[in-house]
Design a protein around this nucleic acid. Structure first.
Lengths: 198, 198
DNA sequence: GCAGAAAACGAACGTTCGTGCTATTTTGCT
DNA sequence: AGCAAAATAGCACGAACGTTCGTTTTCTGC
């Protein structure tokens, strides 16, 4: 790996943290260059536009998410263990130190929800994939007999996302110390509702 | 009402819509002035800083929310009718035409969750109040015997907020046409879980 | 309808934004 | 060690940002 690729990777890592606090638009070339102790133009040369930088930040974060949340959780056995692993790792992700401002995707989702363009489109793709992973995980559990037939995977996915977003809101904005406990309880209730009668 | 107060009110109305799309930081003096067909300085004179403008936008939106969501819902009888009214009007609020970018408070919550200052503090107050209204409404329902004793008002409030946020995400970002139906179903499930065994 | 007050304007300020250039330095290879 | 290529720096640009100022227009009360 050449030096160029190396610096670019380091920039993206820093940019991801910055974006979690200030949003993708808040990842300003000047601020990022100052943090990296690089000149504005030197940093800018790595990407060729701000839009490209934003796209790469999104790509970087998505790869991290797959690495730290999805992949290890998919190693768990189907049914409740896998769903619990997804949820727990998701919680951990949004609290992880490289994301001082909370989950980058939450920030980006609100920021881009009515700002058309390639960045928004990529984010939509990522989010759809993630919701798909949740829904599929439930579906596989249904097929394995762990959850009852009436359980609706897409409803479940949206519901779990809601639990996460409410946690994010109560925790990051309101600083409510009970937010995490409530999030876990809400998730357990969702699981229980899907559980097959034995 | 003097002319000054009148224009300021008109500005705040427009600013609220703008903020729902671009966030409170995105309510730029220049853009707002252009929309109002006013000079930058003429508009600026009404408020004396951008921070004051943001605070007044928040105040204006909160008053609207009380007027269109909370007050009419509290006129409904305690128990399920009141909670349903709160939820339905909340849904309507985030789709209402003066908020082309969705719920202003959702946007502001994510934007300000790690930006200290008076604007953030005011938002926290507003959000706590709103969660309090939801929790209290369930509590009154418990006391009236409509919900069972084990129901946790604060858990319920966070859960309902989650339903709303997930709806916002699925609807505004993903343009999922089933988002609203799922939100209603999720809310009904929450209600059912709290309902007293007859 | 006139005087005084209130409201709106136009121009300018210092910064910061993203983005081009053209040097200069640093790297990697032979 | 030397040389081409890659990486970084320096500087400038036009635009937009919030804010200030002095002037001009528009209201309002007598």
């Amino acid at each position: 790996m050449g030096k160029g690729t190396l610096t670019r990777q380091a920039i993206l890592e820093r940019a991801t943290g910055l974006a979690s606090k200030a949003g993708l638009e808040g990842v300003t070339i000047g601020a990022l260059a100052a943090e990296m102790e690089l000149s504005k133009s030197g940093l800018f040369a790595h990407f060729h536009s701000k839009e490209a930088l934003q796209l790469q930040v999104l790509e970087f974060a998505a790869a991290q998410f797959v690495e730290h949340v999805i992949r290890p959780a998919l190693a768990e056995p189907r049914g409740e263990p896998r769903l619990r692993a997804l949820f727990e790792r998701w919680l951990g992700w949004s609290q992880s130190s490289p994301l001082p401002g909370g989950c980058l995707f939450v920030q980006a989702s609100v920021e881009l929800d009515d700002r058309p363009g390639s960045v928004r489109e990529r984010l939509v793709g990522i989010q759809r994939q993630w919701l798909g992973v949740i829904a599929t995980s439930l579906q596989k559990g249904i097929e394995a007999g762990a959850f009852h037939d009436g359980a609706d995977p897409e409803q479940f996915a949206q519901d779990v996302y809601g639990v996460m977003l409410a946690y994010h809101h109560a925790s990051r904005l309101l600083h409510d110390p009970r937010a995490e406990t409530r999030a876990r309880r809400a998730f357990e209730t969702l699981l229980a509702a899907a559980r097959a009668a034995h």
